[in-house]
Write a protein that binds this DNA or RNA. Sequence first.
RNA 1: GGCGACGUGGCCAAGUGGUAAGGCAGAGGUCUGCAAAACCUUCAUCACCGGUUCGAAUCCGGUCGUCGCCUCCA
Length: 480
Amino acid sequence: MSLKIHNVLTREKETFTPLSEGKVNMYVCGPTVYDNSHIGHGKTYIGFDVIARYLRYIGYDVLYVQNITDVGHMLGTGEDRVLKKARQMSAEPMQVVETYMRSYFEDMDSLGVQRPGISPRASGHIPEQIQMVQQLIEQEHAYEVNGSVYFDVSSFPEYGKLSGRIVEDMEEGTRITSREEKRHPADFALWKKAEPEHILRWPSPWGDGFPGWHVECSAMANKYLGHTFDIHGGGIDNIFPHNECEIAQSEAAHGETFARYWLLTGSLTLEGVKMSKSLGNTLTVKDALKRWRPEALRTFILSSHYRSPIDLSDSAVEAAFKGWQRIWGAVSLVREQLRTAAAGDASEAVTAMLEKSKADFISKMNDDFNAPAALAVLQDLTRQVNTLINEQGPQTQGSLSAIDQLYRELGGDVLGIIPEQADASSNAEREDGLVRLLTTLRAQARANKDWATSDQIRDQLKELGVVLEDRADGTTWKFE
RNA sequence: GGCGACGUGGCCAAGUGGUAAGGCAGAGGUCUGCAAAACCUUCAUCACCGGUUCGAAUCCGGUCGUCGCCUCCA
């Protein structure tokens, strides 16, 4: 069964066939680094993280490029975002960029998002961008006015094919643009002349200036992935004008298809209200992580399809967390029992169960990366695993490690919600030993019906975030 | 006004022609020193109206409603 992807370009689900066999070139629009990342970034990049992880899981060699925009992204007021922040912080623009770029990586690392293969910065690719602008001028797709260069939308008839916009219709709805320099309101800047107070500036054939917002993606995608590549991703809110402009620039310049499959993620709202910088109702990733563990946030985000919008609320994340706990509980139980399991191969029943789950999981993910459905497969598997262990008693080492292995693959490698081990700290082994010592002492107390001591140990460990569960075959524990 | 998406049980959410996955919450039960966990049972005919079809949540038309984009946004 083959992978199917909903291609925004065609609005249809298509069989995915990469340009070169076994290899996927993928570009995702990254953040503009002038402030801390919010949970909406988390949704988008967790979404593409799982997509990249899954593509690798089914055997593709994935080159994942995600830009860092650190120049040229203007506010509605015509002000550069980075410069504005720099002024507020009394810092060098590049200091701002450096600070928030690091913050972005830190946040994504915390959320378990694997880093892209290349994270090119716009400011580090000025020559590539200038070259592209020059090429567009030579091809008469762009024109220069007073030191700025604009893309001539009328020269690219397909403009609007991704977002479904029609240039003629837009003229009426478009607010009056301040730039009288433009021949047509829909034309967009490729290069902007720098006013004297604009510090982020570079020399160019048209004088000192800086690149427009859209051109960095086209130039960098081209540099690392070529004229045509497989997948272009991003948030749906950038479909227009950003993604549309990328297509126009790239296809006009190269005369070839830009990206073959477009995947756009739905937006995240907060308590029913759209989160936006202008409204100021943002939840940063850092703040979210103070409240919930990363696996809970990932599970929440993956519990709806990447293309769907999602509304974050306390109760919704809490529900996702409880669901995750159920899976994690089974994984913990399996790993705990593995320590003392009798030798032996995996039973036929277990092998069959695991093969079925794996096949189901893959078929769900093959259907346009349907993570919520894949998650449901893990929930089903979890019920079967719990039943197996509870009702049929201790399993062999072979069975348990096969179960553990499947959770590691599907829950860990692909979805990124199952940790390698309960606690990755350097003291993990020591803590493990201490908890075991306490459970042993508690077992002795229980044997003596010394419930006071028994409960004291359990209650106090609970306060430390270690949950004990008494089972017929002994006590298991896990970190909360 | 234009473009687009969506409307599935108390909540979240899969499902695009054959009689509704999964999670959370609720109710009952099993197990248990207690607790927790787990497991079992139970809980919807898919916004509304009309049409196509042997058969529709799933296709077509209409109505109502929600949201996104069109201006900075992942």
